[in-house]
């Protein structure tokens, strides 16, 4: 473990707590893409299957349980508890365009053609594009509540911090994993437009709502 990865995990944890709190306190999932949350739940389910077979550390197991639990709790809030506030009309991204290519790619490019490894690879590829429905929805509605933008900032920062962690691990331990690194770079690049707007939000007129040009 290094400080970059710890910061990344904390940023990731912060993001999903912000999202859960936003939905629970406002009793609404307006502006939230249920499709992205489904993608994240699939990602963590495919990646954390080794939760019971491969104990790494208390921290690792605890975080996996938290991420899985929060992902499904968020799905419950969106599709069951506050279903009436789910914005079907704006959450229209065709997720099959994400799922099919990532399944194919995980079968073609992986470290080891074993079920667990292919599922892990699939989860890495899927996570890199899972935020697209949400970013698409924000661009479609033309704005994001400030709390949603904080969620996106924390979520985008998590993988950016992981990239620094991978650079550190390469020089410090000689470890690297090109699949994770390439997917992580793609994932972080997708947020760049949003990062720019989020950071310059203070200097723009409508500082209250964050508007992303389509």
């Amino acid at each position: 473990m290094n400080v970059f990865r710890l910061a990344g995990d904390i940023s990731h944890l912060l993001a999903i707590i912000i999202l859960l709190l936003k939905i629970w306190t406002s009793r609404s999932c307006a502006g939230i893409s249920g499709k992205s949350q489904v993608m994240f739940a699939i990602t963590y389910t495919a990646r954390y299957l080794d939760l019971f077979t491969n104990f790494i550390s208390l921290y690792n197991s605890t975080m996996k349980i938290i991420f899985l639990g929060a992902a499904y709790a968020t799905l419950y809030l969106i599709y069951v508890r506050f279903k009436a506030t789910y914005d079907h009309n704006h959450d229209t991204f065709r997720v099959e365009f994400l799922l099919i290519p990532t399944v194919i790619l995980s079968v073609l490019i992986n470290h080891d053609f074993s079920p667990l490894e292919i599922l892990w690879t699939f989860s890495i590829y899927l996570e890199s594009v899972a935020i697209l429905p949400q970013l698409f929805m924000v661009s479609k509605t033309g704005e994001a509540e400030s709390i949603t933008s904080h969620y996106l900032f924390a979520l985008g920062s998590y993988r950016a911090l992981y990239i620094i962690n991978w650079v550190y691990r390469y020089y410090a331990e000689g470890f690297y994993d090109l699949i994770a690194i390439v997917a992580g770079v793609v994932q972080t690049v997708l947020y760049c437009d949003f990062f720019y707007l989020y950071i310059t939000k203070g200097s723009r007129a409508n500082a209250t709502e964050m508007s992303i040009e389509a």
């Binding site: 990731h12 490019i109 962690n165 991978w166 470890f175 690297y176 994993d177 699949i179």
Partner: peptide
Amino acid sequence: FLKKLNKDEL
């Protein structure tokens, strides 16, 4: 060349 990272990352 796709050297594996041990799966200790989340």
